[in-house]
Design a binder for these strands. Structure first.
Lengths: 349, 349
DNA sequence: CTGAAAGCGCTAACAA
DNA sequence: TTGTTAGCGCTTTCAG
């Protein structure tokens, strides 16, 4: 019966649109129109095709479709992480959850691409430029990373997590790091703290820069003098944060508050403070950033700044899909507000 | 010049194998043979094609290739996580790193599929059964999850993380959870502890069952009586672990050691013990499992059991690729040894 | 060892 | 509204 002369179809093989068309008594074109929700199909034809699809368990072959449409219906999520420790923080996982939710609703696949070295980053770049995905979300690139600019130039639609440093306008989604940090420090000021230190994050990433700037904003606004001796350099890693804070305590033993640019650094800070004989929050109040799970594991529990990570992931996906469908439009940036979560480490609500 | 009459190629379009063949002065077939490392090509032809490929920056179109080969050159990584908190633990991220390393070496793509609800799990099942990927790695399924069995039955090559409960033999990669737990408890016994409690993990997952069994093994071997009152039920979440341990302390106030089935539960245990006025490790020694980053953030630092997570990820990928290429062979299981990492919480080395 | 030709499953003109 | 036709870019017989 079948046009190729084979009497039957081997088990495990999938029905093609040809099979559907034949069973429904229509042409391949009509079957295809139904599969793609084209409006120009008669109700009868549509019903017949729908029934045939159900009967045969037909699922379109993505490869064949891609070949025609020149779209892969998949996007890349690139995790750029020189240190390899990215997943120690639940941030990326939660972002993936958000992205994946938004994509599932549109039946787009998420291709995960990890680049831990410059060499791998090149591999990823080649992959993206080859057009194997319709666009990409870049997570974690540092300020000096050339990848975003190069992809943008080669016409690969991209969306960044976090504001891009330097020139170039690429779409991005960010949280209001500066405003959040400022809220945190204002809260400490309101609590009567007068010697507020900070352990900042990496300064080649917008989050690091912005959170430190928010700290400075709040001090400035409160009319407190900017003392560089109150700023310690961390890199989001608890060990470096502990060292940085110990040095800071030698320089400025009388501090009465610490704002850390991440919860894991804040947790380390609490331990260092306690080991130095200081009580938290009585002697020194502490506020972190992220509202990660560790915030609930410190004693006292950690006050922190929360960002809507899953929502940000969804928005990144939405922005990218929009960009893919409207290549002409200018890139857009979305910034989400942050919330202060007050717990015991800063004296409680 | 071109066969379709178009004078040139619009910018951004990619060279096809046809372009390569023309420039190299050979047929498409020969160009294809070179691209696929077929041995039956003359050195001259190979050189000419290679040069043309480089000159044109030719990258094969995956969709077209898939259409012919009936392979997608991509695999799915399914993260089954009813609770949604999977990424709070770096385990999954590290596994992804390992998987992705092994795949990158073979130029296979990783399609990430998240299933947080039964509905999403069905969606994922349909996707996998439609043949959109060549196989899948399943991470995190609970013992009662029907997905592995169903995929196996529909002929989708799969590899599980963790031993499968119940019947059915599916390929899997696991760490020696039982042996690791046993080592941990033997270590406590050797340190002279005589009343050793455990906070176990979820008992519908092999890791939960096996770690508890390892605990029991060690007690049995040491000739210590099995006291059900020394076992507290956790679910890997620190809050439940804290509650469980508090109850246990009421039942058995004289315990001198705790083995927790995860580091985050062990960290919670340390805090509960300290808040109850007990010293760690002097009064109560504590050992966790995973050697996750939190192990270094507790005071005292946490003794724990380490598993080679990235290596396990690589092995899962390798196993799956082997299974895809040799569909006839029986499924295989690989178990990795675990190491005890002794730190201060159990009295130090 | 090489080339001509067929066709994977699908969508998109174009006609009807 | 529908069907016919022509490929998308690639691999793979099959002759030579």
């Amino acid at each position: 019966m079948s046009s190729n002369g084979r009497p039957g179809r081997e088990p495990g093989a999938h029905a093609t649109i040809e099979d559907v068309a034949r069973l429904a008594g229509v042409s391949r074109a009509t079957a295809s129109r139904v599969a793609n929700n084209s409006p120009k199909v008669s109700p009868e034809a549509r019903a017949a095709v729908t029934a045939a699809v159900a009967k045969l368990g037909y699922v379109p072959n993505r490869a064949a479709r891609s070949l025609m449409t020149r779209r892969s219906d998949s996007i890349g999520v690139v995790i750029v992480e020189p240190a390899g420790s990215l997943f120690a923080d639940p941030f990326f996982g939660r972002l993936l959850v958000g992205i994946s939710e938004a994509l599932a609703a549109r039946d787009i696949q998420l291709v995960l691409l990890m680049a831990q070295t410059a060499r791998e980053e090149e591999r990823v770049e080649r992959y993206l430029e080859a057009g194997h995905v319709d666009g990409a979300i870049l997570v974690g690139p540092h300020g000096n990373d050339p990848l975003p600019g190069r992809l943008e130039r080669s016409g690969v639609p991209i969306v960044l997590s976090g504001r891009q440093l330097g020139d170039g306008t690429v779409s991005h989604v960010d949280s209001d790091n500066r405003g959040g940090a400022r809220m945190a420090v204002e809260h400490l000021v309101r609590r009567g703290r007068r010697s507020i230190a900070t352990i900042h994050g990496m300064l080649d990433m917008s989050s690091g820069i912005d959170r430190r700037q928010g700290y400075r904003d709040a001090l400035h606004e409160a009319g407190m003098t900017q003392d560089p001796g109150l700023e310690a350099a961390g890199n989001y890693h608890p060990v470096t944060a502990a060292d940085a804070l110990r040095e800071l305590l030698e320089r400025r033993p009388r501090i009465d508050a610490v704002f850390a640019a991440s919860d894991s650094m804040a947790a380390a800070a609490i331990r260092v403070l306690q080991e130095s004989g200081r009580r938290v929050p009585e002697d020194v109040a502490v506020v972190g950033f992220d509202d990660s799970p560790v915030a609930l594991t410190t004693r006292p529990e950690l006050s922190t700044v929360r960002q809507p990570i899953e929502v940000m992931g969804r928005e990144m996906a939405r922005l990218l899909l929009h960009r893919i469908e409207h290549p002409g439009e200018a890139p857009s940036q979305v910034v989400f507000a942050t919330d202060l979560v007050v717990r015991e480490s800063s004296g409680g609500a």
